[in-house]
Design a protein around this nucleic acid. Structure first.
Length: 652
DNA sequence: TCGATTGTTGGCCGC
DNA sequence: CGCGGCCAACAATCG
């Protein structure tokens, strides 16, 4: 038997402390040991990742590499710029690898990727070891103990979890790491498939991600943001296990905060400091172990002299919800991230529905514009120009800092979907995916389904008001003043509804409330994009009717488009185009597809929806999934679009 | 079987 | 200003 030569493959576990998989790797007693990260094109191009999340990832990688070197000065994180599916077979040979070890991943792409890598390892005679470690309980086992069904409520998790077993106590970081062997690369690099590149819009410089397999200096170091083509991060939140453990220490040191934490009682308007822990991005990248978090909190709660809070509202309760979403996704696969083909997601005829590839049964990253007005509302929502200060403040905080409070996420999600715009939750989920530093596919899709009342939650008549809700938390409007500085001087009477401020008050505050937000002008804040009370009524009515129809995403009627026969034409949603033949059905061709290929103008137009000289509406930038189209300006899109929609209507 | 209860986090009105 | 009850009413769970 040859002595083990082991690759430890880091993915969503960028830490040394409490890693069951890392322990399994070291238990092999390797002769040579390489800590490896594969720079996967799927993440670089196909995931939507904004600058703040890139920064966080790079922080985590640098910190981990340093920690590795601290234990063994000959070692570090070997960052390799190639897809694991093509890299590993070559690497197994070149480095005479005997074992590949990693932490289990139940994300849909993660599973596909790992299945393929395991197959390749077998072919190469390499042993594969993996361990669960990303969640409190193994997600597949949680599903199994939930009668083989996706976990759709927290009580199901609370019942099934203990059946899987006790949540393990964290294990310490290794004190010893074996040397890596010779790390020569005597093979060619496979160049990745770049298109579609969902991130082209936020690249400012040339993309050099894959110029050399071991990086520009051929030393396997972590890339800089600039190499990837991205500008500097705009937010204050930084990654890495070192920071994560310091943050946790601080939280745990405050016994009262830790033991009595109740999520619904934390203020979404709090900033500097925020009301919640900010540890979610560390859970996402694995710079903090969830079991470490769980037990440190649980021990404080158990020893607390007063009355400790309990799940679901307590800190540990938040972690249970995370496990719930992970297990739901583990059970439902790709369909969990979309409406179509999702057996547990209600079908609501939202505006701007996703385009779907019916062969793969997955969304393709583009959507139908069934309503030009909804498209305009989506962009005003995304860039914080809705005219509702509470919504705009949150969306601007999200864009700049990559994080907003959970209840703030509720507010903007409800507003975009069932409580305002009646736009598909998938559009909102895409924006969150791009901007959130703690974006977790399972949690994001799950929370959007929750808030849009399409799964997990059904009380759609409980609707967040963009005026009354923030009023409860922040009467002075400090949060709005911080993130919507145009309104800084406005009297608190009008801070959540500035359109009601008399001209004299507007003058005093140095702000004019006018226009539709398409032109960003100094000292101007837009009028609200609709009457909220009116929209709430329309949405509620639409929800009631959609619930009565009672379709789910995998219903044949939903898939073949005949669902339209079950809805009246006067119901809010794409049914207003009963005439719009392609609202949900087969792949669009021609005009519509071409229109979607507009530049992802986020870099140029962030925060503003500029006006085109022709008078047509200029869009502020969005996720199109088009290939490299940066720098191009869109002209007269709206005009063309109107034409297109009219044309479509005539077809029937 | 079915009615009552419960569900992490609403708004509004009146006291 | 804070609190309790009601609004109008979803679905899963439980006895």
């Amino acid at each position: 038997m040859p002595k083990p030569r082991v690759i430890y493959w880091f993915r969503t576990d960028l830490r040394l402390r409490d890693s069951p998989a890392l322990k399994a790797a070291l238990d092999l007693n390797p002769e040579a040991f390489w800590p490896v990260w594969t720079w996967d094109p799927h993440y670089v191009y196909r995931a939507r990742v904004g600058v703040n999340r890139w920064q966080f990832l790079i922080d985590c990688q640098n910190d981990l590499s340093k920690s590795i070197t601290k234990i063994n000065e000959k070692s570090k994180l070997f960052l390799m710029r190639e897809a694991p599916q093509t890299l590993f077979p070559k690497l197994f040979k070149a480095w005479k690898i005997t074992h590949l070890v990693f932490e289990k991943d139940t994300d849909s792409y993660g599973r596909d990727r790992d299945t393929e890598v395991i197959r390749l390892a077998r072919e190469a005679g390499v042993g594969v070891i993996f361990r669960s470690g990303r969640t409190l309980w193994d997600s597949d086992q949680l599903v199994e103990k939930n009668h083989g069904k996706p976990t759709m409520s927290i009580s199901q998790v609370q019942t099934a979890g203990p059946k899987v077993g006790k949540i393990p106590r964290p294990i310490p970081a290794p004190k010893f790491l074996p040397d890596p062997g010779e790390s020569n690369l005597d093979f060619e690099q496979n160049q990745p498939e770049v298109a579609p590149d969902f991130n082209s819009g936020s690249r400012k410089h040339e993309d050099k991600s894959y110029e050399k397999i071991s990086g520009p200096h051929e030393d396997f170091t972590v890339p800089a943001l600039e190499e990837l083509g991205f500008p500097a991060a705009t937010g204050p939140h930084r990654g890495g296990e070192t920071i994560a453990l310091e943050m946790l220490d601080k939280i745990i040191a405050d016994e009262k905060y830790t033991a009595t934490f109740e999520k619904p009682n934390t203020a979404p308007t709090a900033f500097e400091p925020q009301a919640t822990t900010l540890l979610s991005p560390h859970l996402h990248f694995g710079s903090l172990s969830i079991r470490e978090f769980y037990w440190r909190v649980q021990d404080v709660a158990d020893n607390y002299s007063g009355k400790a809070s309990r799940p679901p509202v307590s800190l540990t309760g938040q972690l249970l919800f995370r496990d719930m979403y992970f297990a739901a996704q583990a059970s439902l696969g790709y369909s969990f991230g979309q409406t179509l083909y999702n057996s547990h997601c209600r079908f609501i005829p939202w505006h701007l529905p996703s385009k779907v590839n019916h062969e793969t049964k997955t969304v393709i990253g583009e959507y139908h514009i069934d309503s030009p007005q909804a498209e305009e509302w989506l962009l005003r929502w995304k860039y914080g120009r809705t005219g509702f200060p509470w919504i705009d403040a949150l969306m601007r905080q999200l864009c700049q800092e990559g994080w907003i409070h959970h209840l703030g996420r509720h507010a903007v999600a409800c507003f975009l979907t069932r409580g305002g715009c009646y736009i598909s939750w998938e559009r909102g989920a895409e924006v969150f995916e791009e901007w959130l530093i703690d974006h977790e596919t399972a949690c994001n899709a799950g929370n959007w389904q929750w808030l849009s009342c399409t799964a997990f939650y059904a009380q759609f008549y409980r609707c967040y008001s963009p005026i009354a809700f923030p009023q409860k938390w922040d009467k002075e409007g400090k949060f709005v003043r911080r993130y919507v500085p145009e309104l800084k001087g406005l009297d608190k009477k009008y801070i959540y509804e500035p359109w009601k401020a008399p001209i004299a008050d507007q003058k005093k505050a140095g702000v004019k409330i006018e226009g539709d937000g398409k032109v960003e002008k100094e000292g101007v804040y837009p009028m609200p994009m609709f009457d909220f009370a009116e929209r709430r009524t329309i949405c509620l009515d639409g929800m009631k009717k959609a619930y009565k129809v009672g379709l789910y995403g995998d219903d044949p009627k939903v898939i073949d488009g005949t669902w339209r026969e079950l809805f009246d034409d006067d119901v809010e949603g794409p049914t207003e185009g009963k005439s719009f033949e392609d609202a949900m059905g087969r792949e669009a061709e021609g005009d519509d597809a071409k229109l979607r290929e507009v530049p992802v103008g986020g870099d140029k137009n962030d925060g503003a929806v500029e006006e085109d000289k022709s008078g047509a509406k200029e869009k502020g930038g969005e996720n199109k999934g088009g290939d490299a189209t940066k720098g191009r300006k869109r002209k007269g899109v709206q005009g063309t679009l109107d034409g297109h929609v009219k044309k479509s209507k005539k077809k029937l």
